[in-house]
Write a protein that binds this DNA or RNA. Structure first.
Lengths: 333, 333
DNA sequence: CTGAAAGCGCTAACAA
DNA sequence: TTGTTAGCGCTTTCAG
């Protein structure tokens, strides 16, 4: 049997409540008793049960994190950053991958509630559910890398529209006139695409259409993705620059372009979004729009912690994106 | 206040114990009461508290996972696989990144105990601690991608020695005579290096020495790693083939080789270990020794689950590695 | 087949 | 300053 507060109390010859008080630094206890109790805590190797105090206090020091896929480098980076920030404030992270499947999202959310997490972070799907607030029954919740436009839920995100605009503009500045964009139809990307399209219009270029703005389903296999990207590469007139809304697509686009005997960036320029390990290791290294993930993680945990402790009002924080110039974009002459 | 079993009991006009029985399918209850209770459970939207039953049953359905770094693609792949397998059996995963720092390992381990995880999976450091068993106080524990040679702790791992042997041999079969190997000095890699060295000896080539077997500290920065790899590339006579003990090193080696105007694989061949997203996306795609991670994850969870339910004896499972031929190795003439 | 009651390990209110 | 007690939400005897 696990060694409990009772055992410590008995050994030290005091009441359980006294032990509890020295553990938690509450009430007032004489220095001697404190020392004696601590001695016996050491002696017995006692560790307070998180479960029991969770039951008592209704606080678990656990945070639930819903992400699409832990095996995706972007999300594992994010998860790692959140893990560290959470730890600074004494929280553990319970991570669940949803694969953008609504049933998984709901069932994991229920699991979080069942296990009484103190708060929930959502970085995943939930596009059409307009009653998350009901589902999570008042639990503190914040979105990261995404917003909940119709619901007054806190979020730490990024100006995706302007990110798309910036990416397109950078290409246009390099004299590209025939752009294409490729994205999964998930939160944020639609904004990126809109921003890109606007930049094209603002530059007086012909509006983008369904042939050069490519949405690839979240459920698509690698093969299907390859097929779509190849199609795009083979359009006539073929695009001279492609905006890829994530690093995986960027990497694949580079790879497939090479297979088509297109030199990157000489024959075709590629600009990405996000900045995972992949970006620097590609050949050529990827010029990309980076999200300030570290700051976002920090703010997310900070905000969630605040909401856990006191009911602060909901808040949207939207950070700016940064363009990292590497070698996958070249000017056209 | 959270809605509890009491509320359901009251609403259904039965005792708490009755509700408990219908939830858990224990005892024998008449069909009518079952239906009535279930009705009210629905009606009230009742979810049993995991915390309370954890306290009562001493079972949390949580597993603690200790890995070096969630942001490393190899480990996030592993974590994702484990997450899925754990979920199949109804467990959650609590993931902690240790960065190979012993203090973190110990403190996370304690946290796991405090929160009463049902079992622990270790994929991280703990090289010199020979009393893990004492630390985890009898909790079920299994190592994945690593073993505990001196301690009779269960592990699901891989034949690293033969993996190293195989990698070197493959190169030797391609007529390479001047090999180098680069690795972090962590569990498993030492075996890989030994295997590689043995293959070299068995082929009658001159023994490998400290100039062509390069251990790069786990704490090294990217810059330091680059420096070491460059050194290796510039050795004279320069190696014609390099074995990289992880995907990141392989990617960097390819990248730096190119910077030195070495064509891969024409001028220098590279073979890696593990098979993350990176491997397929490199240019050229990486020939590599793959661990059967999926199987390993499945076996790990299965074993841990068995140990949780009944005290089965400790067991070492060691799987074979597979060589994936891609395009980063070419023969020498 | 159903219910009453004890107790998992802890904390907080109240008494001493 | 310290101790007694009740109770968080659940499960499990044991009686009826």
């Amino acid at each position: 049997m696990r060694i409990s507060i009772k055992d410590v109390a008995k050994a030290a010859g005091v009441a359980q409540s006294t032990v509890s008080k020295v553990i938690n630094n509450t009430g007032s206890i004489s220095k001697e008793t404190i020392d004696r109790v601590n001695y016996h805590i050491q002696e017995l190797g006692y560790e307070p049960s998180g479960i029991a105090s969770a039951l008592r206090n209704n606080k678990t020091k656990a945070i639930g994190l819903l992400i699409p896929d832990l095996a995706n480098p972007f999300f594992s980076d994010l998860a790692r950053l959140l893990e560290d920030e959470a730890n600074h404030l004494g929280y553990r992270l319970s991570i669940s991958s949803t694969d953008y499947i609504k049933e998984k999202e709901l069932s994991y959310l229920k699991m979080f509630l069942k296990n009484n997490v103190d708060g929930i972070i959502i970085a995943s799907g939930m596009e059409e559910i307009d009653d998350i607030k009901k589902v999570v029954a008042g639990k503190p919740i914040v979105g990261i890398t995404r917003e909940f436009p119709s619901q007054n839920i806190s979020s730490i995100s990024v100006n995706n529209y302007y990110g798309g605009y910036k990416a397109a503009n950078y290409l246009i500045d390099h004299h590209h006139k025939n752009l294409a964009i490729i994205a999964k139809p998930v939160w944020g990307n639609k904004e990126r695409v809109r921003g890109c399209q606007q930049a094209v219009i603002d530059a007086g270029l012909p509006e983008m259409n369904s042939r050069n703005t490519l949405f690839v389903e979240t459920t698509s296999t690698f093969k299907e993705q390859h097929w779509h990207i190849k199609q795009l590469l083979q359009e006539t007139p073929s695009p001279t620059a492609i905006i890829a809304c994530n690093n995986l697509f960027a990497a694949k686009t580079i790879q497939l372009a090479k297979q088509e005997r297109l030199s990157v960036p000489k024959d075709i320029s590629i600009i990405g979004f996000d900045d995972t390990v992949l970006a620097q290791l590609m050949d050529p290294p990827l010029t990309t729009i980076r999200q300030p993930l570290q700051t976002m993680a920090k703010e997310t945990i900070k905000l969630l912690d605040q909401k856990i402790h006191s009911k602060t009002s909901e808040l949207q924080l939207r950070l700016e994106l940064e363009l990292i110039e590497r070698d996958s974009v070249a000017p056209i002459y």
